[in-house]
Nucleic acid binder design. Structure first.
Lengths: 171, 171
DNA sequence: TAACTCATGTAACTTGTTACATGATTCA
DNA sequence: TGAATCATGTAACAAGTTACATGAGTTA
C-alpha cells in the first residue's frame, strides 16, 4: 500500500511517466520506499485499468512512447482514502514505511490531527502490550526490547508531527 | 527469512509440533514476528523436504497425529548461516524484525561481535546517506526525518547489544 | 564500437494471505 | 447440544522478485 501511495502521490504532484518514476524511486527514495520496476509497471497498469490514473502518450525520438500518467478524480478519492488508512494503521511487524507523511497536505489539517491521534493511541497500546512480562519470552527479552525501542521512536515521532500540525492550525 | 529463523530457532530450542508453534506465534510473539498458519505449514513442509528438520508422529486421542519436529545437523548449519546473514543485513525499508537477537547464543560471542559491528557500520552508512540534503526531497522531509529516527534507534540498539556481548566476553 | 541510458515491458518463480475443509475432544 | 479447542491441512488468489527481451539514442 505504501507503494501505491508513493506512486499515486507522485503522479498527483506532477504528471510523470513510469521510467522517470522508477528512476526517482531507485535513486532518491530508495531509503524510504522499496519498489522495483516490474512492480511499478504492474501497479501502474492496475491503477490505469481501475481508473485511478490515465495516461497520454508522448513520443521522443524513436523510443517507445512515454506514458505520461495523471491522476483522475476517482484516483484522487482513492488516494485520500488510502492516506487516511495508512495514517490510521500501525502494524507491529515490518513497521510501515512512512511515505504517507509526504502527503499530509492532501487532507484537511483537522482530519490529519484526528487520524494521527488515533495512530498515536494505537502505538501506545502496542507499547503497553510489549511491557507485559511473560514467561514465554525467555530468551526473547532482547527482541522485545528492540521492538519496544522502535515503538517508542514511532510514538515520539507521531507526537511531534501532531504538534506540528497543531501549530499550523493555530496560526 | 525472519519467519524461518523463528521457526527453526524454536524447533532448535525444543522439539515442538506445528499447532503449538503457530499458537505461540499468534499469542505470545505476534508483536515481534508475523507468521500465519498456512505459511508456517508450508515452511515446515519445505524445511522437512530440504532436510533441515524432521518429525516423528505422536498420537493423542483420535486427533490427527502431531508432527513433532526436531532440527537435523544440516538444519543446524543452515540456521547458523541464516543467523549470520540476518545479523549482517539491515534493509532500509521494512526494517528487519529482530528475531535474530533471540538466538545469539548459537554462535561464538567473538563472531557475534564481528557481525554486529559490521551491521552497525552499515546502519551508520545508511544514516549518513539520509543526511545528504537533496532537491528531490521537497515535500518528503518528514518522511526522511522519520526514517532517520528509526535508523538512529536501530543504531543505538545495535551498539547496546555490542556492549553487552563485549561485557560477556570480558568476564 | 562498445557501453550506457532511455523507455517499454514479459515470464517464471517465490512468498504470503484469506477463506475453506475435516473431524475428534472438551467444557459450559 | 453447541461452541471452543486440538490438529492437520488445501485452494485460490495477491503481491513481489529476478532475470530476460527489445530496440533506439548517446557518449567515450
Amino acid at each position: 500500500m505504501e507503494k501505491i501511495l508513493f506512486l499515486l502521490g507522485l503522479i498527483r504532484n506532477a504528471d510523470i511517466h513510469a521510467y522517470h518514476l522508477i528512476a526517482l524511486a531507485e535513486s532518491h527514495f530508495n531509503l524510504v520506499v522499496s519498489i522495483t520496476k516490474p512492480t511499478a509497471y504492474r501497479l501502474l497498469d492496475k491503477m490505469t485499468s481501475d481508473g485511478w490514473i490515465r495516461y497520454r502518450e508522448e513520443q521522443v525520438g524513436n523510443h517507445p512512447p512515454r506514458k505520461i500518467y495523471s491522476i483522475t478524480p476517482a484516483g484522487e478519492e482513492i488516494f485520500c482514502d488510502l492516506l487516511r488508512q495508512s495514517l490510521t494503521e500501525y502494524s507491529p511487524t515490518g513497521y510501515s514505511s512512512p511515505v504517507n507523511l509526504a502527503f499530509l497536505s492532501a487532507l484537511p489539517a483537522e482530519e490529519v490531527l484526528l487520524l494521527l491521534e488515533g495512530r498515536r493511541d494505537r502505538v501506545q497500546t502496542l507499547l503497553q502490550k510489549l511491557n507485559v512480562s511473560d514467561e514465554y519470552r525467555h530468551g526473547f527479552q532482547r527482541v522485545f526490547q528492540h521492538q519496544r525501542r522502535h515503538f517508542e521512536a514511532e510514538l515520539s515521532l507521531t507526537e511531534e508531527v501532531i504538534a506540528q500540525v497543531q501549530a499550523s492550525l493555530s496560526l
